[in-house]
Design a binder for these strands. Structure first.
Lengths: 246, 246
DNA sequence: GCTGCGCTTTGACACAGATCAACGGAGGGC
DNA sequence: GCCCTCCGTTGATCTGTGTCAAAGCGCAGC
């Protein structure tokens, strides 16, 4: 069922070399990581792991988008994380997974067995430091998201989401988008609804509303054009000096 | 303005010795921490720090309760963290604070200047390890909270909050509550509303509702009696196998 | 080309929780 | 004692978002 893996001989040419857990490693340390890593790929829509699964493997997203999801029995679900390239899945020191992880596009992961990875954390402080930094960044992001979920209106939620994607969108050549006029939504309306604590219908209505007010233009369902990023920011309800994302 | 500080000569008799960032430290390492720590106290209601302040000091809560809050200009605010004893304030590697920090009861902090603390992180891996562990725990907690904010009803939110407090409540003698029949709310109705993404009126109404349905009893405004923890858990909408908090 | 399926949009209506307003009760100052 | 303030409760009404239902649209298979 797995898709063919991209050929990636060495870490030094890895697209997430400078943003993932290995960001601070020198060449020697990279060799150690290289020795125990392996790649795994998943097709769009595939389940990568489910809540309660044994957490034998931890991984970084190399290519694609995955989601971290939490559900309650009656079917309500909330997306609690959007995993883009360089984001980390799993946590050292925990034996079972807390969330459902799903590939929303084709995804390639750079995997490590948990035990050797934990040993490596001790041996290579650079990895531990970077892990801490990434965890704290994610914590800040999660807290911003709490503000969104608890206090923002549906329209503000959509605008904030578009801003989030715009900020994290990177050109194919690796350059960060300066002119963020055209963004590609990585997830469906349903996943957006689950991310924003809304229903799919409300998401759809807000898109229509923003389009009618000329804040955005739609080109198909997945492509959004943003004539003026400042206007969108205003709609998002965030103060302009808001936290930098990366 | 500061209240008198409790006399705490040495780390080894510190009430949060085994839960804070120093939890894994041996006696030698504790001495190093001891050398650079200092205590600071705040009265109930005092602002500890505000968003945008220079983050010169990081700290652990030793005694009392503080809140981490995020606001938008029009007055809406969302509590993004409840800081109980052993919880950590501030983050290494960041120069300004992202949130407003307020003491809701009298609070005593164990403080470190950020720079020496960052140096210490490198020198004492045990602190770094513990920091990572705590950050990941908080991340999990934040994600659970996202589920609550995004998907739970007002009644479920209140029940979940009571469960949270019950789980973290510790007897004065340090023993974790087994019989959690009586809990003390650390925050006002207003703070609860800001925590749960509700209004104060809705919080009040849900308390009344739960009381009428014999899920809880109230003894004054701040004391809640829980005849049956299982019933409350059911009301909270969480599955019974839910994540352990500590 | 037609058909069927999945995703999205749109419409009508319902309802949980927000808003606005008034009241109650505890505690502190004098 | 009285008054005042702060906090919480209760009531009436409003509204944003959810729910239920149907229709539009693009795409794969035949």
């Amino acid at each position: 069922m797995n898709k063919p893996m991209p050929v990636m001989e060495s870490c030094s040419s890895c697209p997430i070399r400078h943003r993932a857990v290995c960001a601070r490693c020198d060449e020697d340390e990279l060799v150690q990581l290289n020795d125990i890593k392996f790649y795994k790929s998943y097709g769009a829509g595939q389940t990568i792991a489910m809540r309660g699964d044994a957490l034998d493997v931890v991984a970084s997203v190399v290519v694609g988008t995955a989601t971290l999801e939490r559900a309650i029995e009656d079917g309500r679900t909330q997306l609690v994380g959007l995993l883009l390239p360089s984001d980390f899945i799993g946590r050292p020191g925990r034996k079972t997974l807390q969330y459902d992880v799903t590939a929303v596009t084709d995804v390639t992961l750079c995997c490590f067995y948990r035990k050797p990875f934990e040993d490596l954390l001790i041996r290579i402080p650079h990895v531990q430091e970077r892990m801490l930094e990434m965890a704290l960044d994610e914590l800040d992001a999660a807290r911003d998201w709490m503000l969104l979920l608890g206090r923002k209106t549906a329209r503000e939620k959509i605008a904030s989401f578009l801003m989030l994607i715009a900020k994290r969108t990177v050109h194919p050549d690796g350059r960060v988008l300066g002119d963020t006029s055209r963004i590609e939504l990585p997830i469906s309306r349903e996943a957006m609804a689950n991310f924003l604590g809304l229903t799919i219908e409300t998401v759809s209505r807000q898109f229509t509303g923003l389009r009618k007010d000329d804040v955005i233009e739609l080109d198909g369902n997945r492509t959004v054009l943003i004539p003026d990023l400042e206007t969108l920011l205003l709609e998002s309800g965030d103060d302009s000096d808001g936290g930098v994302l990366f």
